[in-house]
């Protein structure tokens, strides 16, 4: 079942990239979920789509630009979107979540316009929306590897600051944590990881890969570190099984990967409930 993934380069690319985003996606996802920023991931993935559309349009209309990989412009848009969200959040102090629909709908609106202008409603677009096992190039794979390393280094270096900021912002202030900078750094990492994950899981399902494994982990983890470990474990499992299934069934991997994350979620919820009621029976409650 797995052999083909060693045989063809495009499958290797997809598998390696998948493993990388299966690691950093849920890793950042833990912080996203505990800080209640899940929707920011969605907003950023939609603005990534706008970048891709812009790239498609450029390729079509500007003669000089050929062979531009849309992923890179997607990353640029995602990062700009992240900065913009922070700006808007500061403008609406008490309605910070307003930034999300503004960016999300703005992103889709502009995206649809650009895609139409580029006559881009075709299979290419489909693979950006739901992922593809065939779309990842070698150079994409290396880019994602570099982003993964950067994210890992930053998370390790700022682990305790990220923890304090997520847990208790007041305490972060009296700990001398430079909250604004770390938050900006964090949101930029999220933007890059979303753009990286896009080719494998697709824009519409990126946020699911980042948050659903965390939802499962939250059910059973006893500490924050355990939450991270389990989230990554669930993320990797979903990506691996999802990719293999997608290849053999000839369906977009985004769908299979997300279905596996949901399956894991159901299993954790059910097993948690079964074990609680089992203990209750044992204790005669």
């Amino acid at each position: 079942m797995f052999e083909v993934f060693f045989k063809y380069e495009f499958l290797q690319n997809a598998a390696v990239t998948g493993m990388l985003v299966g690691l950093v996606g849920p890793l950042l996802g833990v912080f996203i979920v505990v800080r209640r920023l899940s929707l920011i991931a969605d907003a950023l993935s939609h603005i990534t789509l706008t970048g891709i559309a812009a790239s498609l349009l450029l390729e079509k209309k500007v003669a000089m630009i050929t062979d531009l990989n849309p992923v890179y412009l997607g990353m640029v848009f995602s990062v700009l979107g992240a900065v913009l969200i922070e700006r808007i959040r500061k403008m609406y102090k008490n309605y910070e979540e307003l930034a999300i629909p503004i960016i999300l709908s703005g992103g889709i609106g502009l995206g649809v316009l650009l895609i139409s202008l580029a006559d881009g409603f075709n299979t290419d677009l489909f693979s950006y929306l739901f992922g593809s096992v065939a779309a990842v190039s070698r150079s994409n794979m290396w880019t994602v590897l570099i982003i993964t390393i950067i994210v890992l280094v930053i998370v390790v270096l700022f682990y305790k600051e990220l923890f304090v900021l997520s847990f208790d912002e007041d305490h972060a202030k009296v700990s001398g944590v430079k909250g604004r900078w770390i938050h900006l750094l964090f949101i930029l990492m999220v933007a890059l990881v979303i753009a990286s994950s896009m080719q494998v899981v697709g824009i519409l399902l990126v946020s699911a890969l980042m948050t659903l494994p965390v939802a499962s982990a939250l059910k059973i983890a006893k500490s924050f570190k355990q939450t991270i470990a389990l989230s990554v474990l669930f993320g990797e499992t979903s990506v691996l099984i999802g990719l293999v299934l997608a290849y053999h069934l000839s369906v977009p991997p985004g769908g299979t990967i997300v279905m596996i994350t949901i399956l894991i979620l159901i299993v954790t919820i059910v097993s948690k409930n079964v074990s609680t009621s089992f203990f209750m029976v044992k204790e005669g409650v």
Binding site: K160, D168, F224
Partner: peptide, 26 residues
């Protein structure tokens, strides 16, 4: 209740976070 209620941290992790100010960055 100012802190994040559903936060999945252990008591030990929370107390250790009190050392952030003493440790400083990096």
């Amino acid at each position: 209740n100012r802190f994040n209620g559903g936060f999945p941290a252990s008591v030990l992790e929370v107390v250790k976070s009190g050392l952030v100010s003493r440790l400083g960055m990096f």
